[in-house]
Write a protein that binds this DNA or RNA. Structure first.
Lengths: 330, 330
DNA sequence: AGAAAGAACGCAAACGTTTGCGACATGCTT
DNA sequence: AAGCATGTCGCAAACGTTTGCGTTCTTTCT
């Protein structure tokens, strides 16, 4: 069977296509009687408007593009869920793309979004993005682009992210408050702005408030690497009393190492992490963490998108607040 | 700035629209010289074809719809990642929708897919779906629909799922092999066919191979409920030596209860789970599990989709094999 | 009674492509 | 010189909508 069109309905009813179109849109020009007939038949024939035709005619795709390095991630998936939910409410759909951290795929995905004439773009940079030009095309075409989480450092762009500076401060404060003396702190890829911000605020806070604390800073590329680093440092310095993890991925690696070494939390070593909140609660005792909510970030990103679409031309950098969630590990 | 079109290029070059179109598609009718000029200008003007126009003209949307209850799920997200990856390679994009287990939203999402004239549909049923008719519309319109994981029981549909019967058998076998005497087995929503299959195979295997084993069967609606059930039963019967969990969600709840009761694994109690493989490795010792790979299921679903699109009319029910992954918990 | 106003509907263009077919020029064959 | 194949290109229709404007008919006012 083939899809019902306005034409088909018009032929059955002996009316013009435009009348059918207007009737279905409840246009005042059309009489109630006609509207009833049209609506009834449309339902009977299971009419669904052709989105492509509408897009072509109206130039409104009602589709958002959303790109993340990977959707299999406790942070991004809640962000996506949040944006998707909000978009649906407003009659938009979301085209989700994953870049797999590959600049090539990233470009291809952006091209796809442009071909589909997306109404707006949510983008999270991969960790090895050097060339922003494919992203900036959207701006040239007046398509709003909201960067989230891993945002570029350039000025004049719309960005939403966690209050990363605050994240670093709060984490450091929590550790200082417990009078810890020797901290192994594990960060992620050091050329991402998110890492830079968290790391510098973290260090700075220690420098100001507790300069005597021993601070070992390391960068882990993945979970395994984090585990390796923990093993390595515990063999060298048995004085370490606290481990700080910048992300879930790193936390998982660190915890593996700790469990392998059969260390007790928090008597042997304290743990503090930054997380969406899911992974920390899987451990026992549950891990204390600074909460970064993907869900809230999604809401914020969506709000900003809508602001852009309704004409606000103010390029803004917004952040969502964070808080410290005390568990049993620190 | 506005998007470049074939018309714009044709005007600049003093050629017709059709020539531009053919030149960009490397049509043999067009001379090499013209092709060069066209391609060059198209690049300079950053031309990207309008997907809506193409879809309207060719009736090929090159888009797949994919609906899951929620994308924030260790199983689904790998399934999605898998389908998305494969689709991209074949020039398709994926429109991902989440139903939030709400039949209303489910219908809306399906409507959206129809409006976008998706080339095919991947669907995972919500746990309280009673009416399949919105799904079957796709069949009437010759749009292939592949059900995955939570599949309907009706005949004559395309379904891919884990070999759920085997899952139940393997799980039971593993427990029997360890000569366990009293098993608390936690299943999910009992009106989902996936639960039915796993549960009946599980029970049947015990019945045949080890009728003397004490089998306590419970159904948990979520993580918390699972934790509650574990607490409840351990207060009553202190003879339980094994807990079986049908899913990650249930495992997480059960583990929480066990840790709260300060039980040792596996000396106090053994654990066996069914999982994608991520969650079990977070615990120490790592949890033994029967592996159900969302990634592989995605590949299979995609293969079947492509088969449908290339004309195969055989409605098939396919399953992907499972294996037992031994950890330290059983 | 005549004019103006309103109600209900149809015409046709436009959105950006693809594609069958026809048009024209050129070179080659007898 | 006439015919034919070949190489390049343009015309125009079609896909399914939306929408400004025009048309027709009925009603209402003076």
């Amino acid at each position: 069977m083939t899809n019902t069109t306005l034409k088909k309905i018009s032929e059955v009813l002996g009316l013009s296509i435009s009348t059918i179109s207007r009737a279905l849109k409840n246009h005042p020009d059309i009489s109630e009687k006609t509207k009833q007939k049209v609506i009834e038949l449309a339902k009977a024939l299971d009419y669904e408007p052709n989105a492509s035709a509408i897009q072509l005619r109206t130039k409104h795709s009602k589709i958002f593009g959303l790109m993340v390095p990977t959707i299999s991630n406790f942070f991004y998936d809640s962000f996506i869920a949040s944006v998707e939910e909000e978009s649906r409410k407003q009659g938009y759909s979301v085209m989700i793309l994953q870049s797999s951290d590959d600049p090539e795929i990233e470009r291809e995905n952006l091209k796809l979004c442009r071909q589909n004439r997306v109404s707006g773009m949510f983008a999270c940079l991969g960790s090895n993005v050097t060339d922003l030009s494919s992203f900036l095309r959207f701006k040239e075409l007046d398509t709003p682009i909201i960067f989230f989480d891993k945002v570029p450092e350039e000025e004049g762009l719309n960005k939403v992210s966690m209050a990363d500076k605050r994240v670093g401060e709060i984490a450091a404060d929590a550790i200082i408050l417990q009078k810890k003396k020797s901290v192994l702190s594990l960060f992620g890829n050091s050329n991402m702005s998110i890492t830079k911000k968290r790391e510098s605020a973290f260090k700075e806070t220690f420098h100001l408030r507790s300069p005597s604390t021993q601070l070992l800073v390391e960068h882990a590329i993945d979970s395994q690497d984090a585990a390796r680093l923990v093993h390595h440092h515990f063999e060298q310095h048995n004085s370490i009393d606290t481990i700080f993890c910048m992300s879930d991925e790193i936390l998982i690696g660190a915890m593996k190492a700790i469990q392998e070494m059969n260390l007790n939390i928090p008597s042997d070593v304290s743990i503090l992490s930054i997380s969406n909140g899911f992974i920390p609660t899987l451990y026992h005792p549950s891990i204390s963490y600074v909460e970064t909510s993907g869900y809230q970030l999604g809401k914020l990103a969506f709000t900003q998108m809508m602001a852009c679409l309704s004409g606000s031309d103010a390029m803004m950098e917004m952040t969502v607040d964070v808080k410290y969630i005390k568990g049993g590990s620190l």
